[in-house]
Amino acid sequence: FSITQFVRNLGLEHLMDIFEREQITLRVLVEMGHKELKEIGINAYGHREKLIKGVERLI
């Protein structure tokens, strides 16, 4: 299971460039909250919320 699959499953594949540029893996994403996601350029609250909720389902 990769970050690419995870992001695609959430319908947020347009954010993949950010994850690749910042070298974010699923392991790193698990540790990130709204503040960190915003810092790397994910400005939409809804997108950040989707990512965080998606990660919570993985754990």
Rank of each mutant, 00 (worst) to 15 (best):
F1D: 12
F1Y: 11
I3M: 12
I3Q: 01
I3F: 10
I3S: 02
I3Y: 03
T4Y: 14
T4S: 13
Q5R: 08
Q5Y: 08
V7L: 15
V7I: 13
R8P: 00
R8E: 09
N9P: 02
N9H: 12
N9M: 13
N9D: 14
N9K: 12
L10W: 03
L10C: 05
G11S: 05
G11C: 08
G11E: 06
L12M: 08
L12A: 01
E13N: 09
H14Y: 13
M16S: 10
M16T: 10
M16G: 07
M16I: 12
M16N: 08
D17Y: 14
D17C: 10
D17M: 12
D17V: 14
I18S: 02
I18W: 03
I18L: 08
F19Q: 00
F19C: 03
F19A: 00
E20T: 12
R21M: 06
E22G: 07
E22R: 09
E22T: 08
E22Q: 11
Q23M: 11
T25F: 03
T25M: 04
L26M: 12
L26R: 02
L26D: 02
L26N: 01
R27Q: 13
R27M: 11
R27P: 14
V28G: 11
V28R: 15
V28C: 14
V28W: 08
L29S: 01
L29Y: 02
L29G: 00
L29A: 01
L29Q: 01
E31Q: 15
M32N: 02
M32I: 04
M32R: 02
G33F: 04
G33E: 01
G33V: 03
G33W: 03
H34K: 02
H34I: 04
K35V: 07
K35P: 09
E36C: 06
E36T: 05
E36M: 06
E36V: 05
L37T: 01
K38A: 10
K38Y: 09
K38G: 05
I40A: 06
I40D: 00
I40H: 04
G41D: 02
G41H: 03
I42L: 05
I42D: 03
N43T: 13
A44L: 12
A44V: 10
Y45L: 11
Y45G: 06
Y45P: 12
Y45K: 12
G46L: 14
H47S: 12
H47K: 08
R48C: 10
R48S: 03
R48M: 05
E49I: 11
L51M: 05
L51E: 00
I52P: 01
I52K: 04
K53F: 06
G54D: 04
G54R: 03
V55C: 14
V55W: 06
E56S: 12
R57W: 12
R57I: 12
L58S: 04
I59M: 13
I59N: 10
